[in-house]
Design a protein around this nucleic acid. Structure first.
Lengths: 219, 219
DNA sequence: ACCTGAACACCGTTCAAGT
DNA sequence: ACCTGAACACCGTTCAAGT
């Protein structure tokens, strides 16, 4: 018996290593991920992972690839390019919400995986098909990327524990005050509660999204 | 002689520890920061830092505080609230650009320092003074925060080495292709170059900014 | 081809001890 | 009050050795 999973386990490969790493981060947080512990989770020692991944940085890059490959664009039923681009924004925010602990990697690892480019390519095609000039389409894409990713990441970082909006008001306040400085002057407390208050973030996201698209529209 | 700086050095305090930490991250990158090395940079052993900071997480939180306190809002000369909010967006992007290695902390540490709240408070006052309903002002603030932070962070992560736009075209291409997968299909290469291409990011930022503000305007 | 043991320098953190 | 030495468990990574 050479490992806890028995001897019938198929040999490791890069893909299962990366998949397991993402699952591990989803469950235990990014800081908890180590080569040793990931190895243990796979019934193997840390050193064995280096047969499938160059080093830890490469593993993190692998997670980013995996994230981009899991983006789920809603089917583009409407023939409106504004809806198409809104779809990307929602899909990105969804992705961040599904992987809150791994999402920061999307802006901290400087790589653009194939899966991301495929998504961009499809979107640019649609936009061009709708008659948008190419430079405009690219600018639009970049803007939406930045908005959706930025919104989701700040939203997440400022309400980390806040799973659902179902929680009790009192513990919501407690949670917000944990993010605020303990020595916060009274006159700033109100501002903190307002800006960090959970409210309906989905609605806020949609509203700003529509505003942006309208801004593009009147051009 | 108890340390490299001589015996006349004034005793450490939390502020100089945090300041030095930020400077260290600015120079050597976030990954390079360790308690041991920060101690050495201060002419002291790692353990001594724990007299001024609870632990490394608290140190990182301190850096986030420091970052927010270094935001520089351009003076609000115009009486136009759209310019006021644009000023915040530019200041945030500037801040990220001035501290590219530390900036990711802004969305990975779940705290909202006093300096941030003070900035928000001033802005909300101005917006209310211009006649905007409070809920609208807050939503506007959140949107701009997300947009500016998101734009700057994605911009940074996808052109990490790209210091100035003055660089040679060839090495710019080389740099981009470093971010792209080595096995990228040809048909996606063009998309990658377009989306990641440096172009004039400041202009792109401004353009989208104006579009968003215009979207708000026609309401 | 894949995995391991032993080993390395480095990490965060503690605690008792020094001044 | 502030700093240190010794010590701890835990990192990432290498390499020679096993199958």
């Amino acid at each position: 018996m050479s490992n806890g999973a028995g001897d019938f386990r198929s040999p490791l490969n890069r893909n299962v290593v990366v998949q397991t790493a993402l699952r591990y981060v989803d469950e235990h947080g990014l800081e908890a991920l180590s080569m040793h512990k990931l190895g243990a989770a796979l019934g193997v020692t840390a050193m064995s992972l280096y047969n499938h991944v160059d080093n830890k940085d490469a593993l993190l890059d692998g997670i980013v690839e995996e994230l981009w490959s899991r983006i789920e664009l809603a089917p583009n039923t409407h023939d409106d390019w504004r809806e198409t681009i809104a779809t990307l924004a929602r899909a990105l925010r969804d992705l961040v919400h599904r992987h809150p602990h791994a999402a920061t990697l999307l802006t901290s690892r400087p790589i653009v995986p194939t899966a991301a480019l495929r998504t961009f390519d499809a979107l640019l095609r649609t936009l061009r098909g709708a008659g948008l000039p190419e430079t405009r389409a690219i600018q639009l894409l970049r803007t939406m990327l930045a908005y959706a990713l930025g919104f989701a990441l700040t939203e997440l970082s400022w309400s980390n524990a806040g799973r659902d909006h179902e929680e009790k008001e009192l513990q919501r306040l407690r949670q917000i005050s944990n993010m605020l400085p303990p020595d916060l002057p009274d006159e700033l407390l109100e501002v903190g509660l307002k800006v960090c208050g959970a409210c309906d973030m989905t609605a806020a996201f949609e509203l700003s999204l529509q505003l942006m698209l309208r801004g593009l529209d009147v051009d």
